[in-house]
Amino acid sequence: MASGNISLTERQAVLLTVAFYMFSTCAMVLANKYALNAMPVAWLLLWCQMAIAVLLLKVTEAFGVLRMPQINLVTAKALIPLITINVLGLGVNTLCLIYVDTSFYQVARGLVLPFTVIFAYAFLRQSSSKTVLIACFIVFCGFYTGVTSDINVSSLGVFFGIVSSITTSLHAIVIKQSLSAVNNSSIDLVYYNNLLSFIVITPIILFSGEISAVSEHYAQEGSAVLHKFFFGVILTGVLGFMVNLAGFLQISKTSPTTHMISGAVRGVLQTFLGYMVFSEVITFGRMAGIVLILAGGALYTWAKDQEMRANTKPTYIPMTQQDIDEEDQDGHKA
């Protein structure tokens, strides 16, 4: 009876973790779109988000929840590739969201899986099975269907979506290489990533002309637009911190397969939330593209799960006294 209670608690913990991840990531995209609709200043929004994330990390340290690392110049230099990819990725993600609807965001960034497979082979020499390649082809068909069937799609938004897919794919590879620089501490990496990205984005704001854009919006529309934007900034800053925490929790509490499946479900929720919150139009072509992208992702998840099962060596359990005697003599069961 006790074991049943423990099992139920574990299942509840997994469900809550996955729900927390999906809620925070969906809310993050919607809050970003809300702030960008008020003022399309992508780099300023990111700069504020980084500042809030660093502040909240420091607050958790002050309350003894987490411990932040001391900034080390050698470590910071080792993380330059990660910071570069992170800043570029966040920038194009946000710029993509300026030019496309939240319901089309899933399609615009739909090539993450094919680029991940390509870069895994190019940089890590990881070959892929035929099933994985078929999954990538289905995803590409979904991207092509969604982009070509929607007459109102922004070419610039699609371009930023493709670059975002590239940076997202590279980000996973760079993270693996960067963890060794922080003694494999995910929390240390999150802190370095947010703080150094905040520093790098600061001069970008100064040269992007976004400060002047804020002044122009204020002169034309008054303080209401500033209130709307900064409310969105605070909301996205808090949600950004939650996304970092949610991703860490989900990866630690669930399997990679569950993580990918929840990401696919999140894409569907994000699409329909965009439709309901911002009254966006979901065309048949757009929906067909999303379905194909998710189908390709589901096939990829299944294929990788089968590969992991095949590569897992079954545990040998002696069943008879003769088995035990033979194991004692040989040291192992042949």
Rank of each mutant, 00 (worst) to 15 (best):
G240K: 02
G209P: 00
G110L: 01
T25G: 06
S255P: 07
C136G: 06
I261C: 01
Q322S: 14
Q321G: 10
T75Q: 07
N184T: 02
H332F: 15
I71M: 14
L15N: 07
I151R: 13
F160V: 04
S154E: 08
A13V: 13
Q270S: 11
A62Y: 08
I282M: 10
I138D: 03
G222A: 01
G232Y: 11
R286S: 09
L73T: 10
I187T: 15
M276S: 14
A19D: 02
N37S: 14
L156D: 09
I151F: 15
L292H: 06
S7R: 12
Q329K: 13
T315E: 11
L269V: 15
N37K: 12
V139K: 01
F198R: 03
N152R: 13
C96I: 00
R109D: 04
D330I: 09
Y144A: 15
L15H: 09
I290Y: 03
T148S: 15
S186Y: 13
E210N: 05
L124K: 11
I85G: 08
P81T: 03
Q126F: 09
A295H: 06
S155C: 10
T301K: 03
G274V: 02
G285Q: 06
L66I: 02
E216A: 13
L299N: 05
G232V: 10
V265A: 09
G297K: 00
R11P: 05
G161Y: 09
L97H: 01
I234T: 12
M287T: 12
A78M: 02
Y275K: 00
S186V: 11
L90Q: 12
T94G: 06
A295M: 11
V41A: 02
T254E: 00
G267C: 06
T116Y: 08
E327C: 11
I138Q: 02
F143W: 09
S252C: 04
L30E: 08
L44N: 06
V100Y: 05
S155P: 11
T145S: 03
T271C: 03
I175H: 07
L239M: 04
M287K: 00
S7G: 03
F198N: 11
V29D: 03
V243C: 05
E210L: 02
S197Q: 05
Y121S: 06
P69R: 00
G161K: 06
C48H: 07
F207P: 08
L45P: 00
F140Q: 03
E326P: 04
L156G: 04
S127K: 11
L56R: 03
N244C: 01
A51P: 02
V59N: 03
E10C: 03
T17Y: 07
R109V: 10
C48V: 14
I317E: 09
K304S: 08
P318I: 12
K130R: 14
M276A: 13
V65D: 11
Y121A: 10
C136A: 12
V139F: 05
N183Y: 12
I134D: 00
Q270V: 05
V132M: 03
L273P: 07
G157L: 00
T94N: 04
T312M: 01
G247Q: 08
L88N: 06
T84Q: 07
L170T: 01
S127A: 14
F20G: 05
D305H: 09
C48T: 11
A334D: 14
